[in-house]
């Protein structure tokens, strides 16, 4: 927003934190909106519900097994006003929040406004729900679903460490080696050389607790899932022959990305907020250093550890009437 409206933002956000307008009528309409959102995102798109389903296989204990929106429409339909109110007062509290302000502002003025607008909101008794952590998986899991889709697809999720762990960054850089751009291994092998997939992506979910890296791909018509999976495993195994040169290229891309991200105030603010939520606001300035220091041996070790088949959950998405 333009900086002349700084206080307006404080006013709005402080009003929202103080209390929401909890009415049955408002809740009913918002439930209807979110049900339409659920349909639009997950049910009315080919493969739209793949991750909704795979999360449940991958996380059997941790609440990451549900997307924020819920597992199914009934989760939204059945939410009551009391539950919503209780959740709000249990978490949306000044003693459970961090405020980040970035842009064309004077720090002294920001502090003054923060005291003015947030200082009088009472501390709240927070809900202390211990979040159950996912135990090691132990053996490969898989499930099959059928839907109105044109191509077979294979969705894989691997357990990776928490965002606060150094190893998290290793798994993140692995996804770049695998699928960031035309020189990446999955594109070169799966898409171009072997033509097993029109599109295959590896990405990190960026979860705070121990979470997931995904490798999603569709299978070219006429090729088999078995061929796709064998080739994918070969690509993952070949990470043991990763070279310093290739790692350096990926790091150079990351380095440039960091500089480009900092061209927007929003990214600066988000970077600071995420760093704070990880327990160290200074991370916003040192993340680039973490990536720079990553060694070839560490990356190979991480690939062997986290891309083990016993650490993987697979969802096969098959066209309806598939034999």
């Amino acid at each position: 927003m333009p900086s002349n409206q700084l206080e307006t933002a404080f006013w709005l956000e402080s009003d929202r934190m103080l209390e929401l307008n909890f009415s049955q009528e408002k809740l009913d309409i918002q439930k209807s909106v979110v049900i339409e959102e659920f349909k639009q995102r997950y049910l009315n798109q080919p493969y739209g519900d793949a991750h909704l389903k795979l999360r449940q296989l991958h996380f059997q204990v941790h609440p990451y097994q549900w997307a924020t929106i819920g597992k199914e429409i009934s989760h939204i339909e059945e939410a009551t006003l009391d539950e919503v109110r209780e959740f709000f007062f249990g978490y949306y509290a000044p003693n459970n929040a961090t405020l980040v302000v970035a842009g064309d502002v004077e720090p002294a003025r920001v502090l003054e406004l923060a005291h003015k607008w947030f200082g009088d909101i009472p501390r709240r008794k927070l809900k202390k729900h211990p979040i159950p952590q996912e135990p090691p998986q132990g053996e490969a899991r898989s499930m099959r679903v059928q839907g109105d889709v044109p191509l077979e697809a294979v969705y894989k999720m691997y357990h990776v460490p928490a965002h606060t762990e150094r190893a998290y960054y290793l798994t993140d850089i692995l996804t770049d080696i695998l699928s960031n751009g035309k020189s990446s291994r999955l594109f070169q092998v799966m898409v171009k050389e072997k033509q097993l997939s029109p599109q295959v992506n590896a990405f990190s979910w960026g979860m705070h607790d121990p979470g997931a890296v995904s490798i999603d791909g569709r299978v070219v018509k006429g090729k088999t899932i078995e061929a796709y999976e064998t080739a994918l495993q070969e690509v993952l195994d070949s990470l043991q022959e990763l070279t310093e040169e290739e790692l350096q290229r990926v790091k150079n891309k990351l380095e440039a990305t960091f500089v480009m991200q900092k061209t927007t105030i929003l990214n600066k603010a988000m970077g600071l907020a995420i760093s704070d939520s990880l327990g160290d606001p200074a991370l916003v300035n040192t993340t680039a250093e973490i990536y720079r220091a990553i060694s070839l041996e560490e990356v190979k070790q991480a690939a062997a550890t986290y891309f083990a088949p016993s650490n993987c959950s697979t969802l096969y998405y098959l066209p309806k009437n598939h034999a």
């Binding site: 080919p46 044109p150 898409v191 033509q195 029109p198 070219v220």
Partner: peptide
Amino acid sequence: KARNLQKLQVQEMKT
């Protein structure tokens, strides 16, 4: 062309 034809097959199922 081949891979984009396959991607379009998915796209064409979207309203």
